[in-house]
Amino acid sequence: MTTAIETAGLVKLFKDTRAVDGIDLQVAAGGVHGFLGPNGAGKTTTIRMLATLLRPDAGEARVLGRDVVRDADEVRSRVALTGQFASVDEDLTGRENLVLVSRLYGFSRAGARARADELLDAFGLSDAADRQVKKFSGGMRRRIDIAASIVVTPELIFLDEPTTGLDPRSRNQVWDIVRAMVSSGTTVLLTTQYLDEADQLADRISVIDAGKVIAEGTPGQLKASVGASALHVRLLNPDDRPRARAVLERALGTAVTEDPDPAALTASVDSSAPAMRGIAALEATDVLVAQFSLGQPSLDEVFLALTGHPAESAGTDDEAGAERDAAARGAE
């Protein structure tokens, strides 16, 4: 196994916040490594350090065998970054953006135009090529952003929440692009807030919370630790909840948690069979069930299972903002 990314005790401080608090990571070359966590968990900050945009305050990171501080320039020439916010120039057209990036990579004028056309074509952006990017839809913006990242095929690409805020169709398009990148041999480090996205794309997942990796494994391993699905039950009468909880716990043999909604309960189950047993057990009592559903565990449930507390947005929702704050105070 070749290692694409290797970090030891990576730390980044913004003022008093330990945005990244000792991350140890081993990412194999090839495939998709998922970085799963809520807002403010430190995903973006970690990626920015790995992409040489931020200097770590402590610890070490090697990307494709190169140290991100000492060999920053060498790292830059072999990786690409697609930021959480479109990292293209919104005033320029789609084509101009791609020509700009191509020229910066050293393409000749003609070569840059040809490369831009090829990418616009591949990403279904030919029709919009001469429109300013600020007039693009969210999905198109994300695609032009990814296209700009593969002007020169990178060995490793960082995709920072590539589908946040996209509609399902655009999200599927981005997923297709990610799969194409993987099949052409590029290693992908993908951050996401969505468990199903990590499940769809990633070979391995690191779950990150409050600047630390709290779990790591294949999607299968992760889900096994959480339960494959979540059973949600809503009672007609909130007063019945303690009784219903006891019945369900007996039938399922696992812990059942009480939701913020005073009439609702949630339990993780491995499959639909125990869920049906649970519902049947409730049916046998006089507790009235208003509704029930079986679905993928949400990120909250993953966190609840892994940490015992729900996913919290750690105050520093806007990491970039915190970073600028620190900069404004003259902190180096």
């Binding site: 020439s77 990579y105 050293g106 393409f107 000749s108 070569g111 490369r115 090829e118 990418l119 074509d121 591949a122 990403f123 279904g124 030919s126 029709d127 695609r143 296209a147 593969i150 002007v151 020169v152 095929t153 398009q173 297709d176 692009i177 799969r179 194409a180 990148m181 099949s183 052409s184 590029t186």
Partner: peptide, 23 residues
């Protein structure tokens, strides 16, 4: 692919494969 708003996986693969680095 030219006329549509679709992402063509094969074309993306092609674009990836031809992304050689200039000097």
């Amino acid at each position: 692919t030219a006329a549509t708003d679709e992402v063509a996986t094969a074309a993306v693969l092609g674009a990836l494969a031809s992304g050689a680095r200039p000097d």
